[in-house]
Amino acid sequence: MWPGMGKRTSKQAAPSGVEVRLDGVAAAFEEGAFAEALAGAEALLAEAPGLPEALHWRAATLVELGRMEEALEAYGKALKAAPDDVELLLGAAECLVCRAGDDREAVEEGLELCARGRKLAQRAGDVELLFEFLLLEGTGLNQVGECARAMASLDAALGHVPRSVEAQVERAIALFELCRFPEAQMAFEEVLKDAADEPWAHHYLGLLAERRGDGKEARKRFGKAQAVAPREFPPPVELGEEAFDKAVEDAVKALPGHVKEYLDNVTIAVEEIPKDEDLLGESPPLSPCILGVFRGSPVGERHSILGNFDPYPASIVLYQRNLERFAKTREELIEQIGITVMHEVGHLMGLDEDDLWQRGLD
């Protein structure tokens, strides 16, 4: 959503020819001349530092130039100047939800802006913007694992634009993450009726085929996703069984001595992908894309009338295919194996997901 020319909230005098100059910034932006658009916005701000439209264009242009820290700061300034500008709220929320990488705090901040913008759009009767906020909200909720809530937002979005491919894809992803696999299968197949080359639909249909044990179909779907969107879906980094096991052994050896003491009666295993029973043993279910899982009771909760005998021995499982898909390079894969081992050992020691996130082990 490009910055609009709504009612100005700044009380300062507008620069000479402001509308023509803003139109020039908009034209440069839409042509992909982002450096030119940025220069135009900054020239306007040099004369009128609080001009909301120029602040918005500057922020949007910085996003396109990949200068994310500056963009987030610019959106913050713009929102101070025009806190109820719905298009500005949408741009800032999109930046936080979709452009800030794996920063959970940024996504949650973006969701707060979505909630504000959604209410304002609803109050104004702006169905187009309301749809955009609902879609972005569903996307963000999926990212932070709140997939049931994401479903509600995405169903509402589809109520306004029933054939939106983006909303259909996000809704299907939520179904997959909630382990509602037959429904997810149908939802992704429905997406392909409107967008036959939609790469995310093919990728997830590959994951579903993999779960069914249909290797041929999985390879076909993964190959299609990689052909259509090679940057988003590069070929997985594959380690042989021996090399993967060695990486796990090395990760365990690298644990601090006082931590390794807790592993005496803990089995560490490698499986290809998670079993349904591991996913559905939690409420809400665990993501089918989890990298590892801890089975059993944390150290502090173990007890038995039989003394030191534990009738339900603890185990840590790493999922090789999910880890290989997660990483972009061999080095990153080996590093992530170590992080995943530490993550699951954290659960063994009684840490929850919030504790692990605060330690950078999410």
Rank of each mutant, 00 (worst) to 15 (best):
Lys7Thr: 14
Gln12Gly: 01
Val18Glu: 10
Val18Gln: 07
Glu30Ala: 13
Ala33Tyr: 00
Glu42Trp: 01
Ala46Leu: 08
Gly50His: 12
Glu53Ser: 08
Leu55Val: 12
Leu62Thr: 04
Leu62Ile: 01
Glu64Val: 04
Glu70Leu: 10
Ala74Cys: 02
Ala78Trp: 03
Ala82Gly: 05
Asp85Tyr: 03
Val86Glu: 13
Gly91Ile: 05
Glu109Gln: 11
Leu113Asn: 11
Ala124Cys: 12
Gly125Asn: 14
Phe131Lys: 11
Leu135Pro: 05
Asn142Ala: 07
Asn142Lys: 11
Gln143Leu: 06
Ala150His: 08
Ala157Cys: 05
Pro162Val: 08
Val165Asn: 02
Glu170Ile: 01
Arg171Gln: 04
Phe176His: 03
Leu192Ala: 00
Ala201Leu: 03
Ala209Ile: 13
Gly215Asn: 12
Gly215Lys: 12
Glu217Asp: 13
Gly223Phe: 04
Ala229Asn: 09
Phe233Trp: 15
Asp245Ser: 09
Val248His: 08
Gly257Tyr: 04
Ile268Leu: 07
Glu271Gln: 09
Ile273Tyr: 10
Pro274Ala: 04
Gly281Arg: 02
Leu291Val: 01
Ser297Lys: 14
Pro298Cys: 14
Arg302Met: 05
Arg302Gly: 04
Tyr312Lys: 04
Leu318Gln: 03
Tyr319Arg: 07
Glu324His: 10
Phe326Gly: 05
Gln336Ser: 14
Thr340Asn: 09
His347Cys: 05
Arg359Glu: 06
